[in-house]
Design a protein around this nucleic acid. Sequence first.
DNA 1: CCCAATTTGTGCGTATGTATT
DNA 2: TAATACATACGCACAAATTGG
Lengths: 240, 240
Amino acid sequence: MTARYIEIYQQFKTDIIQEKYPANSFLPSEAKIASQFSCSRDTVRKALSHLEEDGFIQKQHGRGSQVLQHSLVNFPISGLTSFQELKQVQRLDANTKVVLLKRLQSTAMNRQTTGFPAKTKLYHLIRVRYINGLASVIDEDYFDRSVVHNLTAEIAAGSIYEYLENTEKLTISYAEKSVTAELISKQDRLLMPDLPERENRLIQVESRVHLADTTYFQHTISRHRPDKFQFNEFSRRQKK
Amino acid sequence: MTARYIEIYQQFKTDIIQEKYPANSFLPSEAKIASQFSCSRDTVRKALSHLEEDGFIQKQHGRGSQVLQHSLVNFPISGLTSFQELKQVQRLDANTKVVLLKRLQSTAMNRQTTGFPAKTKLYHLIRVRYINGLASVIDEDYFDRSVVHNLTAEIAAGSIYEYLENTEKLTISYAEKSVTAELISKQDRLLMPDLPERENRLIQVESRVHLADTTYFQHTISRHRPDKFQFNEFSRRQKK
DNA sequence: CCCAATTTGTGCGTATGTATT
DNA sequence: TAATACATACGCACAAATTGG
Protein backbone atom coordinates (compact mmCIF):
# COMPACT_ATOMS: atom_id res chain seq x y z
CA MET A 1 0.00 0.00 0.00
CA THR A 2 2.27 2.68 -1.29
CA ALA A 3 1.02 6.19 -0.98
CA ARG A 4 -0.80 7.60 -3.96
CA TYR A 5 1.60 10.50 -4.49
CA ILE A 6 4.54 8.09 -4.49
CA GLU A 7 2.90 6.06 -7.24
CA ILE A 8 2.37 9.19 -9.30
CA TYR A 9 5.95 10.26 -8.64
CA GLN A 10 7.25 6.89 -9.82
CA GLN A 11 5.01 6.88 -12.87
CA PHE A 12 6.37 10.21 -14.08
CA LYS A 13 9.92 9.31 -13.09
CA THR A 14 9.92 6.24 -15.30
CA ASP A 15 8.07 8.07 -18.05
CA ILE A 16 10.71 10.79 -18.01
CA ILE A 17 13.57 8.29 -17.98
CA GLN A 18 11.98 6.44 -20.89
CA GLU A 19 11.57 9.78 -22.61
CA LYS A 20 7.82 9.55 -22.94
CA TYR A 21 8.28 13.09 -21.69
CA PRO A 22 11.50 14.20 -23.37
CA ALA A 23 13.83 16.87 -22.01
CA ASN A 24 12.45 20.41 -22.30
CA SER A 25 8.89 19.20 -22.85
CA PHE A 26 6.18 20.11 -20.36
CA LEU A 27 4.16 17.76 -18.21
CA PRO A 28 0.38 18.11 -18.34
CA SER A 29 -0.96 20.74 -15.96
CA GLU A 30 -1.55 19.74 -12.36
CA ALA A 31 -5.30 19.84 -12.92
CA LYS A 32 -5.06 17.47 -15.88
CA ILE A 33 -2.81 15.05 -14.04
CA ALA A 34 -5.23 15.11 -11.12
CA SER A 35 -8.15 14.16 -13.34
CA GLN A 36 -6.09 11.52 -15.17
CA PHE A 37 -5.19 9.84 -11.89
CA SER A 38 -8.57 10.66 -10.34
CA CYS A 39 -6.98 12.31 -7.38
CA SER A 40 -6.81 15.76 -5.89
CA ARG A 41 -4.46 18.44 -7.15
CA ASP A 42 -2.78 18.43 -3.75
CA THR A 43 -1.67 14.84 -4.27
CA VAL A 44 -0.28 15.69 -7.70
CA ARG A 45 1.60 18.64 -6.24
CA LYS A 46 3.28 16.42 -3.69
CA ALA A 47 4.48 14.11 -6.46
CA LEU A 48 5.73 16.98 -8.61
CA SER A 49 7.55 18.59 -5.69
CA HIS A 50 9.54 15.40 -5.24
CA LEU A 51 10.31 15.24 -8.95
CA GLU A 52 11.55 18.81 -8.76
CA GLU A 53 13.73 18.11 -5.71
CA ASP A 54 15.29 15.17 -7.46
CA GLY A 55 16.12 17.20 -10.54
CA PHE A 56 13.68 15.64 -12.98
CA ILE A 57 11.53 18.69 -13.59
CA GLN A 58 11.53 22.43 -13.06
CA LYS A 59 8.22 23.96 -12.02
CA GLN A 60 7.50 27.39 -13.42
CA HIS A 61 4.82 29.56 -11.92
CA GLY A 62 2.14 30.26 -14.51
CA ARG A 63 3.82 28.15 -17.20
CA GLY A 64 3.97 24.53 -16.15
CA SER A 65 6.45 21.83 -15.21
CA GLN A 66 9.32 21.39 -17.62
CA VAL A 67 11.34 18.20 -17.93
CA LEU A 68 15.07 18.63 -17.34
CA GLN A 69 17.92 16.83 -19.00
CA HIS A 70 18.54 13.96 -16.61
CA SER A 71 22.26 13.57 -16.26
CA LEU A 72 22.03 9.93 -17.27
CA VAL A 73 24.86 8.11 -15.53
CA ASN A 74 24.33 10.04 -12.36
CA PHE A 75 24.67 9.53 -8.61
CA PRO A 76 27.96 7.72 -8.22
CA ILE A 77 28.12 8.72 -4.56
CA SER A 78 25.53 11.39 -4.07
CA GLY A 79 22.73 10.72 -1.67
CA LEU A 80 22.84 7.57 0.36
CA THR A 81 23.31 4.86 -2.16
CA SER A 82 25.11 1.60 -1.64
CA PHE A 83 27.81 0.29 -3.91
CA GLN A 84 25.61 -2.63 -4.93
CA GLU A 85 22.81 -0.28 -5.95
CA LEU A 86 25.22 1.80 -8.03
CA LYS A 87 26.50 -1.35 -9.65
CA GLN A 88 22.97 -2.17 -10.77
CA VAL A 89 22.02 1.30 -11.94
CA GLN A 90 25.23 1.85 -13.82
CA ARG A 91 25.63 -1.76 -14.93
CA LEU A 92 29.22 -1.76 -13.77
CA ASP A 93 31.50 -4.73 -14.05
CA ALA A 94 32.21 -4.62 -10.36
CA ASN A 95 32.93 -6.99 -7.52
CA THR A 96 33.88 -6.87 -3.90
CA LYS A 97 36.58 -8.56 -1.86
CA VAL A 98 36.15 -8.76 1.90
CA VAL A 99 39.59 -8.11 3.38
CA LEU A 100 38.63 -8.08 7.02
CA LEU A 101 35.54 -8.77 9.11
CA LYS A 102 35.89 -8.94 12.86
CA ARG A 103 34.23 -7.93 16.08
CA LEU A 104 35.83 -5.27 18.19
CA GLN A 105 34.97 -2.82 20.91
CA SER A 106 35.56 0.91 20.57
CA THR A 107 37.84 2.57 23.10
CA ALA A 108 38.63 6.15 24.01
CA MET A 109 41.76 5.68 21.89
CA ASN A 110 40.15 4.64 18.63
CA ARG A 111 37.12 6.87 19.03
CA GLN A 112 38.33 9.02 16.14
CA THR A 113 38.70 6.20 13.62
CA THR A 114 35.71 4.10 14.66
CA GLY A 115 33.43 7.12 14.97
CA PHE A 116 31.74 5.63 18.03
CA PRO A 117 31.94 6.45 21.76
CA ALA A 118 34.09 4.18 23.91
CA LYS A 119 32.91 0.68 24.78
CA THR A 120 30.53 0.30 21.86
CA LYS A 121 30.49 -3.22 20.47
CA LEU A 122 31.24 -3.02 16.77
CA TYR A 123 31.85 -4.88 13.57
CA HIS A 124 34.96 -3.77 11.74
CA LEU A 125 34.83 -4.43 8.02
CA ILE A 126 37.27 -3.68 5.23
CA ARG A 127 36.38 -4.29 1.61
CA VAL A 128 38.05 -3.56 -1.70
CA ARG A 129 35.88 -2.69 -4.66
CA TYR A 130 37.10 -3.74 -8.09
CA ILE A 131 35.72 -1.99 -11.16
CA ASN A 132 36.65 -3.58 -14.48
CA GLY A 133 39.14 -5.65 -12.53
CA LEU A 134 40.92 -2.65 -11.05
CA ALA A 135 41.03 -1.98 -7.29
CA SER A 136 39.20 1.35 -7.25
CA VAL A 137 37.76 1.86 -3.78
CA ILE A 138 38.71 0.80 -0.26
CA ASP A 139 35.68 0.75 2.04
CA GLU A 140 36.19 0.61 5.77
CA ASP A 141 33.04 0.25 7.88
CA TYR A 142 32.20 0.21 11.55
CA PHE A 143 28.70 -1.03 12.46
CA ASP A 144 27.09 -0.88 15.88
CA ARG A 145 26.47 -4.53 16.84
CA SER A 146 23.44 -3.60 18.93
CA VAL A 147 21.81 -2.63 15.62
CA VAL A 148 23.44 -4.93 13.05
CA HIS A 149 23.40 -8.58 14.08
CA ASN A 150 24.94 -11.61 12.41
CA LEU A 151 27.00 -9.84 9.79
CA THR A 152 28.77 -12.44 7.67
CA ALA A 153 31.41 -12.24 4.95
CA GLU A 154 28.78 -13.41 2.46
CA ILE A 155 26.47 -10.52 3.31
CA ALA A 156 29.41 -8.12 3.30
CA ALA A 157 30.41 -9.28 -0.18
CA GLY A 158 26.85 -8.69 -1.38
CA SER A 159 24.55 -5.88 -0.34
CA ILE A 160 24.60 -4.99 3.34
CA TYR A 161 21.90 -2.37 2.85
CA GLU A 162 19.65 -4.87 1.14
CA TYR A 163 20.18 -7.18 4.13
CA LEU A 164 19.59 -4.46 6.71
CA GLU A 165 16.47 -3.10 5.06
CA ASN A 166 14.82 -6.33 3.96
CA THR A 167 15.99 -8.95 6.44
CA GLU A 168 16.64 -6.92 9.57
CA LYS A 169 13.83 -4.47 8.71
CA LEU A 170 15.85 -1.36 9.51
CA THR A 171 15.02 2.00 7.97
CA ILE A 172 18.18 3.74 6.88
CA SER A 173 17.42 7.41 6.86
CA TYR A 174 20.20 9.99 6.69
CA ALA A 175 23.92 10.62 6.89
CA GLU A 176 26.43 13.36 7.45
CA LYS A 177 29.13 13.08 4.84
CA SER A 178 32.42 14.75 4.18
CA VAL A 179 34.73 14.55 1.21
CA THR A 180 38.46 15.22 1.59
CA ALA A 181 41.71 14.25 -0.13
CA GLU A 182 43.83 12.18 2.25
CA LEU A 183 47.44 11.04 2.04
CA ILE A 184 47.94 7.45 0.93
CA SER A 185 48.93 4.97 3.65
CA LYS A 186 51.03 1.83 3.34
CA GLN A 187 47.88 -0.25 3.79
CA ASP A 188 46.23 1.64 0.92
CA ARG A 189 49.19 0.77 -1.33
CA LEU A 190 48.91 -2.89 -0.39
CA LEU A 191 45.19 -3.00 -1.16
CA MET A 192 45.60 -0.98 -4.37
CA PRO A 193 48.80 -2.39 -5.85
CA ASP A 194 48.21 -0.77 -9.25
CA LEU A 195 48.11 2.72 -7.82
CA PRO A 196 50.78 4.81 -9.60
CA GLU A 197 53.69 5.92 -7.44
CA ARG A 198 53.21 9.60 -8.31
CA GLU A 199 49.75 9.70 -6.72
CA ASN A 200 49.95 10.92 -3.15
CA ARG A 201 46.30 11.19 -2.11
CA LEU A 202 43.05 9.25 -2.25
CA ILE A 203 39.64 10.90 -2.28
CA GLN A 204 37.97 10.02 0.99
CA VAL A 205 34.23 10.03 1.57
CA GLU A 206 33.40 9.66 5.23
CA SER A 207 29.78 8.99 6.27
CA ARG A 208 27.98 8.76 9.57
CA VAL A 209 24.74 6.96 8.88
CA HIS A 210 21.57 7.04 11.00
CA LEU A 211 18.27 5.17 11.13
CA ALA A 212 14.84 6.82 10.94
CA ASP A 213 14.67 6.92 14.73
CA THR A 214 17.99 8.85 14.64
CA THR A 215 20.03 5.90 15.96
CA TYR A 216 23.61 6.23 14.78
CA PHE A 217 24.76 2.84 13.56
CA GLN A 218 27.37 3.06 10.79
CA HIS A 219 30.62 4.87 10.16
CA THR A 220 32.10 4.42 6.71
CA ILE A 221 35.37 5.63 5.26
CA SER A 222 35.57 5.14 1.49
CA ARG A 223 38.89 5.88 -0.17
CA HIS A 224 38.81 6.24 -3.94
CA ARG A 225 41.54 6.10 -6.55
CA PRO A 226 41.84 9.74 -7.65
CA ASP A 227 41.95 8.93 -11.36
CA LYS A 228 38.76 6.86 -11.09
CA PHE A 229 36.81 9.14 -8.82
CA GLN A 230 33.78 11.01 -10.06
CA PHE A 231 30.93 12.30 -7.98
CA ASN A 232 27.91 13.86 -9.70
CA GLU A 233 25.23 15.84 -7.98
CA PHE A 234 22.12 17.81 -8.72
CA SER A 235 21.69 20.75 -6.40
CA ARG A 236 19.21 23.53 -5.93
CA ARG A 237 19.84 27.01 -4.68
CA GLN A 238 18.39 27.58 -1.27
CA LYS A 239 15.46 29.97 -1.06
CA LYS A 240 16.24 32.80 1.28
CA MET B 1 5.17 39.09 1.44
CA THR B 2 7.06 35.97 2.25
CA ALA B 3 4.97 32.87 2.44
CA ARG B 4 3.74 31.93 5.87
CA TYR B 5 5.40 28.51 5.83
CA ILE B 6 8.74 30.10 4.99
CA GLU B 7 8.44 32.38 8.01
CA ILE B 8 7.72 29.41 10.24
CA TYR B 9 10.60 27.50 8.68
CA GLN B 10 12.97 30.38 9.37
CA GLN B 11 11.70 30.85 12.91
CA PHE B 12 12.44 27.23 13.82
CA LYS B 13 15.71 27.24 11.91
CA THR B 14 17.07 30.14 13.95
CA ASP B 15 15.62 28.71 17.16
CA ILE B 16 17.38 25.41 16.49
CA ILE B 17 20.67 27.11 15.62
CA GLN B 18 20.42 29.19 18.77
CA GLU B 19 19.67 25.99 20.66
CA LYS B 20 16.32 27.13 21.97
CA TYR B 21 15.51 23.64 20.76
CA PRO B 22 18.67 21.68 21.56
CA ALA B 23 19.81 18.57 19.70
CA ASN B 24 17.70 15.49 20.46
CA SER B 25 14.83 17.53 21.89
CA PHE B 26 11.42 17.43 20.25
CA LEU B 27 9.58 20.31 18.66
CA PRO B 28 5.99 20.94 19.79
CA SER B 29 3.44 18.83 17.94
CA GLU B 30 2.20 20.10 14.59
CA ALA B 31 -1.18 20.91 16.11
CA LYS B 32 0.42 23.03 18.86
CA ILE B 33 2.65 24.88 16.41
CA ALA B 34 -0.37 25.56 14.23
CA SER B 35 -2.28 27.11 17.10
CA GLN B 36 0.80 29.08 18.24
CA PHE B 37 1.17 30.60 14.79
CA SER B 38 -2.59 30.73 14.19
CA CYS B 39 -2.30 28.82 10.97
CA SER B 40 -3.38 25.48 9.59
CA ARG B 41 -1.55 22.25 10.25
CA ASP B 42 -0.88 22.01 6.53
CA THR B 43 1.21 25.17 6.65
CA VAL B 44 3.18 23.87 9.62
CA ARG B 45 3.81 20.59 7.84
CA LYS B 46 5.29 22.39 4.85
CA ALA B 47 7.68 24.25 7.12
CA LEU B 48 8.70 21.07 8.95
CA SER B 49 9.22 19.18 5.70
CA HIS B 50 11.75 21.76 4.64
CA LEU B 51 13.49 21.58 8.01
CA GLU B 52 13.69 17.82 7.60
CA GLU B 53 15.09 18.08 4.05
CA ASP B 54 17.76 20.46 5.23
CA GLY B 55 18.82 18.16 8.04
CA PHE B 56 17.60 20.19 11.00
CA ILE B 57 14.99 17.74 12.25
CA GLN B 58 13.92 14.14 11.84
CA LYS B 59 10.18 13.51 11.78
CA GLN B 60 9.00 10.31 13.37
CA HIS B 61 5.57 8.92 12.71
CA GLY B 62 3.58 8.77 15.93
CA ARG B 63 6.36 10.37 18.00
CA GLY B 64 7.12 13.87 16.82
CA SER B 65 9.89 15.91 15.24
CA GLN B 66 13.31 15.51 16.79
CA VAL B 67 16.07 18.07 16.47
CA LEU B 68 19.29 16.75 14.93
CA GLN B 69 22.83 17.74 15.71
CA HIS B 70 23.51 20.43 13.16
CA SER B 71 26.96 19.97 11.75
CA LEU B 72 27.96 23.50 12.78
CA VAL B 73 30.51 24.73 10.27
CA ASN B 74 28.81 23.02 7.40
CA PHE B 75 28.20 23.52 3.69
CA PRO B 76 31.58 24.50 2.28
CA ILE B 77 30.45 23.60 -1.22
CA SER B 78 27.26 21.66 -0.91
CA GLY B 79 24.21 23.10 -2.58
CA LEU B 80 24.54 26.18 -4.66
CA THR B 81 26.33 28.62 -2.45
CA SER B 82 28.66 31.36 -3.56
CA PHE B 83 32.12 31.87 -2.15
CA GLN B 84 31.06 35.21 -0.68
CA GLU B 85 28.16 33.59 1.14
CA LEU B 86 30.45 30.91 2.56
CA LYS B 87 32.84 33.58 3.67
CA GLN B 88 30.07 35.22 5.67
CA VAL B 89 28.63 32.07 7.17
CA GLN B 90 32.00 30.66 8.13
CA ARG B 91 33.56 34.02 8.98
CA LEU B 92 36.57 33.17 6.87
CA ASP B 93 39.51 35.49 6.43
CA ALA B 94 39.15 35.33 2.69
CA ASN B 95 39.63 37.53 -0.32
CA THR B 96 39.51 37.29 -4.06
CA LYS B 97 41.89 38.33 -6.82
CA VAL B 98 40.53 38.75 -10.34
CA VAL B 99 43.18 37.32 -12.66
CA LEU B 100 41.29 37.64 -15.92
CA LEU B 101 38.04 39.12 -17.14
CA LYS B 102 37.39 39.31 -20.83
CA ARG B 103 34.74 38.84 -23.47
CA LEU B 104 34.98 35.93 -25.83
CA GLN B 105 32.87 33.81 -28.11
CA SER B 106 32.60 30.06 -27.79
CA THR B 107 33.65 27.94 -30.74
CA ALA B 108 33.25 24.32 -31.66
CA MET B 109 36.85 23.91 -30.46
CA ASN B 110 36.48 25.26 -26.94
CA ARG B 111 33.00 23.87 -26.41
CA GLN B 112 34.35 21.40 -23.87
CA THR B 113 36.05 23.98 -21.67
CA THR B 114 33.50 26.77 -21.98
CA GLY B 115 30.57 24.44 -21.53
CA PHE B 116 28.54 26.36 -24.13
CA PRO B 117 27.55 25.62 -27.73
CA ALA B 118 29.53 27.34 -30.46
CA LYS B 119 29.09 31.07 -31.13
CA THR B 120 27.71 31.94 -27.70
CA LYS B 121 28.92 35.33 -26.50
CA LEU B 122 30.56 34.84 -23.13
CA TYR B 123 32.43 36.41 -20.28
CA HIS B 124 35.54 34.52 -19.30
CA LEU B 125 36.59 35.08 -15.71
CA ILE B 126 39.43 33.66 -13.65
CA ARG B 127 39.73 34.35 -9.95
CA VAL B 128 42.00 33.12 -7.18
CA ARG B 129 40.53 32.72 -3.70
CA TYR B 130 42.87 33.32 -0.78
CA ILE B 131 41.98 31.88 2.60
CA ASN B 132 44.13 33.09 5.49
CA GLY B 133 46.42 34.54 2.86
CA LEU B 134 46.93 31.23 1.07
CA ALA B 135 45.88 30.66 -2.54
CA SER B 136 43.33 27.89 -1.98
CA VAL B 137 40.93 27.87 -4.89
CA ILE B 138 41.14 28.79 -8.57
CA ASP B 139 37.72 29.65 -9.99
CA GLU B 140 37.23 29.78 -13.71
CA ASP B 141 33.80 30.97 -14.92
CA TYR B 142 32.05 31.34 -18.23
CA PHE B 143 28.86 33.44 -18.22
CA ASP B 144 26.40 33.79 -21.08
CA ARG B 145 26.49 37.50 -21.99
CA SER B 146 22.88 37.41 -23.16
CA VAL B 147 21.99 36.78 -19.51
CA VAL B 148 24.75 38.51 -17.54
CA HIS B 149 25.36 42.10 -18.66
CA ASN B 150 27.97 44.60 -17.58
CA LEU B 151 30.15 42.30 -15.53
CA THR B 152 33.01 44.32 -14.07
CA ALA B 153 36.16 43.40 -12.15
CA GLU B 154 34.65 45.10 -9.09
CA ILE B 155 31.57 42.91 -9.19
CA ALA B 156 33.71 39.83 -9.86
CA ALA B 157 35.87 40.62 -6.84
CA GLY B 158 32.74 40.88 -4.70
CA SER B 159 29.62 38.77 -4.97
CA ILE B 160 28.45 38.02 -8.49
CA TYR B 161 25.43 36.14 -7.20
CA GLU B 162 24.41 39.07 -5.04
CA TYR B 163 24.69 41.25 -8.14
CA LEU B 164 22.75 38.86 -10.37
CA GLU B 165 19.96 38.25 -7.89
CA ASN B 166 19.53 41.76 -6.52
CA THR B 167 20.60 44.07 -9.33
CA GLU B 168 19.85 42.02 -12.43
CA LYS B 169 16.85 40.33 -10.75
CA LEU B 170 17.75 36.85 -11.95
CA THR B 171 16.57 33.75 -10.11
CA ILE B 172 19.39 31.25 -9.84
CA SER B 173 17.79 27.89 -9.46
CA TYR B 174 19.77 24.70 -9.94
CA ALA B 175 23.02 23.17 -11.10
CA GLU B 176 24.53 19.93 -12.21
CA LYS B 177 27.81 19.42 -10.43
CA SER B 178 30.62 16.97 -10.62
CA VAL B 179 33.64 16.49 -8.40
CA THR B 180 36.83 14.94 -9.75
CA ALA B 181 40.57 15.00 -9.01
CA GLU B 182 42.43 16.57 -11.93
CA LEU B 183 46.11 16.78 -12.76
CA ILE B 184 47.77 20.08 -11.97
CA SER B 185 48.58 22.34 -14.92
CA LYS B 186 51.37 24.86 -15.30
CA GLN B 187 48.84 27.66 -14.99
CA ASP B 188 47.62 26.15 -11.72
CA ARG B 189 51.19 26.19 -10.35
CA LEU B 190 51.58 29.84 -11.33
CA LEU B 191 48.36 30.83 -9.61
CA MET B 192 49.08 28.68 -6.54
CA PRO B 193 52.81 29.17 -6.02
CA ASP B 194 52.78 27.67 -2.52
CA LEU B 195 51.44 24.35 -3.73
CA PRO B 196 53.90 21.61 -2.65
CA GLU B 197 55.76 19.89 -5.49
CA ARG B 198 54.65 16.42 -4.38
CA GLU B 199 50.96 17.22 -4.97
CA ASN B 200 49.89 16.10 -8.44
CA ARG B 201 46.14 16.79 -8.43
CA LEU B 202 43.64 19.47 -7.51
CA ILE B 203 40.07 18.71 -6.51
CA GLN B 204 37.85 20.06 -9.23
CA VAL B 205 34.20 21.00 -8.78
CA GLU B 206 32.54 21.70 -12.08
CA SER B 207 29.05 23.26 -12.14
CA ARG B 208 26.55 24.06 -14.84
CA VAL B 209 24.16 26.58 -13.38
CA HIS B 210 20.62 27.37 -14.58
CA LEU B 211 17.98 29.99 -13.89
CA ALA B 212 14.44 29.24 -12.74
CA ASP B 213 13.23 29.29 -16.35
CA THR B 214 15.87 26.59 -17.06
CA THR B 215 18.14 28.98 -19.00
CA TYR B 216 21.72 27.74 -18.79
CA PHE B 217 23.96 30.72 -18.07
CA GLN B 218 27.07 29.76 -16.09
CA HIS B 219 29.80 27.18 -16.28
CA THR B 220 32.23 27.13 -13.36
CA ILE B 221 35.35 25.11 -12.80
CA SER B 222 36.68 25.40 -9.25
CA ARG B 223 40.04 23.82 -8.52
CA HIS B 224 40.88 23.36 -4.86
CA ARG B 225 44.17 22.75 -3.07
CA PRO B 226 43.81 19.12 -1.98
CA ASP B 227 45.11 19.74 1.54
CA LYS B 228 42.59 22.54 2.08
CA PHE B 229 39.60 20.89 0.51
CA GLN B 230 36.66 19.77 2.58
CA PHE B 231 33.12 19.31 1.38
CA ASN B 232 30.41 18.47 3.91
CA GLU B 233 26.95 17.30 3.06
CA PHE B 234 23.77 16.14 4.68
CA SER B 235 22.00 13.49 2.66
CA ARG B 236 18.86 11.43 2.96
CA ARG B 237 18.26 7.95 1.69
CA GLN B 238 15.86 7.88 -1.19
CA LYS B 239 12.49 6.31 -0.53
CA LYS B 240 11.84 3.50 -2.94
C1' DC C 1 -2.18 -7.88 25.90
C1' DC C 2 -5.12 -4.42 24.80
C1' DC C 3 -6.93 0.09 24.80
C1' DA C 4 -6.82 5.03 24.58
C1' DA C 5 -4.48 9.22 23.69
C1' DT C 6 -1.25 11.53 21.01
C1' DT C 7 1.18 12.45 16.84
C1' DT C 8 2.46 12.22 12.19
C1' DG C 9 0.97 10.59 7.24
C1' DT C 10 -2.19 10.80 3.37
C1' DG C 11 -5.89 12.56 0.74
C1' DC C 12 -9.90 15.41 -0.55
C1' DG C 13 -12.21 19.83 -1.33
C1' DT C 14 -12.32 24.78 -1.60
C1' DA C 15 -10.86 29.49 -1.97
C1' DT C 16 -7.78 33.02 -3.22
C1' DG C 17 -3.38 34.98 -4.93
C1' DT C 18 0.13 35.56 -8.49
C1' DA C 19 2.71 34.71 -12.78
C1' DT C 20 2.54 33.69 -17.67
C1' DT C 21 0.68 33.82 -22.15
C1' DT D 1 -8.05 41.56 -20.65
C1' DA D 2 -9.03 36.92 -20.19
C1' DA D 3 -7.64 32.25 -19.75
C1' DT D 4 -4.49 29.07 -17.88
C1' DA D 5 -1.28 27.31 -14.51
C1' DC D 6 1.15 27.14 -10.40
C1' DA D 7 1.41 28.88 -5.15
C1' DT D 8 -0.45 29.34 -0.70
C1' DA D 9 -3.62 28.46 2.89
C1' DC D 10 -7.51 26.52 5.46
C1' DG D 11 -10.38 22.74 7.02
C1' DC D 12 -11.75 18.01 7.49
C1' DA D 13 -11.42 12.99 7.74
C1' DC D 14 -9.24 8.90 8.42
C1' DA D 15 -4.98 5.85 8.55
C1' DA D 16 -0.86 4.35 10.87
C1' DA D 17 2.77 4.48 14.43
C1' DT D 18 3.99 5.25 19.13
C1' DT D 19 3.44 5.56 23.92
C1' DG D 20 1.74 4.72 28.34
C1' DG D 21 -1.67 3.10 31.31
